[in-house]
Amino acid sequence: MKKIRNDKEYLVEETLEGYAMMHSDIIVWKEGTHQIIRKHKKGKEKVKFVLGNGAGHEPAVIGWVGHGMLDMNIVGDVFTAPSADKILEGLETINDGSPILLAVQNHAGDVLNANIAYGRAIKEGIDVRKVLFYDDVASAPKGFEEERRGIGGMLFYTKIVGAYLEQGGDVEHAVELFERVRDNTRTYSVAFTQCTHPVTGMQIVNLPENEIEMGMGVHGEGGGNNRIPMPSSAQLAQKVGDILLKDGPYGAGDEVLLFINGLGSTTMMEQSILYRDMVHYLTGRDMKVAGNYCGNCLTTQELGGVSVSLCKVGEEEKALWNAPCACGIFRR
């Protein structure tokens, strides 16, 4: 394995420290912890927005903490959900008496630990609301949406709900908004090349030359060995677009946000070409792209591939998507 690292024991801490140094005007790493916190805190009266996740997916989601986005990210070990104690510790740090919205990505470990931490926080008198996110079309059939895992589409709720809370929005409506964004979001991912676990050095995905895997998860776990020969970008856009449109609440006349996420080693050249083809695909079906993000946002080490997310938006979501923000991945 050729990866930049020092002692693998401190892989996560050194990542957090370095990333916080890089964006020292926006975030702070609380030394000795796995917490990334906003430098300029929201007022006491505003609802706080917190998300926990495993490390190894940078800039997710340490780079999503900042003005108009998350107030805190609690990070676990590599590809491992943060423990209940780490989550509780984070909630205690951020607690100032105002409600805390704790977003949970639907993965077994994230849910288990968040549930334990949530129960303890409530006992301590912390006003926590827990919301669950799922968007991966490949992980469970239509009709079983709640069993799906949460992947790239999380950018939509982070930006939209984050902006709403920055403006001083109330927690009840934030929950409603979160659920609306979730129910209007679908994601599908495709992997092209291998990736290596940064601690073990083992290859967790290994694909034959000229074959891609449809429906890969964020840890590089297989999408059920659903492999096809490498298609052209236009063909890929059509395949992924068909899957998303068939599953989600999308139709002619709708406005959507389009998010092309690079999984690690997919170049901006490739992402741009696919973005172009996805826009052609959508506009060809009388849909309008009301906003976008394109880049390596939620990665799995050097995995080659992309995830494509759509979110149907109305006026409220559109305005919030375009509202100002400042975090590691973007400033608006």
Binding site: G76, S83, A84, D85, A108, G109
Partner: peptide, 17 residues
Amino acid sequence: GSVMTNSMGGTIGPIYG
């Protein structure tokens, strides 16, 4: 149990807890 839950994290942490 609490040592295991907290040091492991993930799914297996709470299971050992």
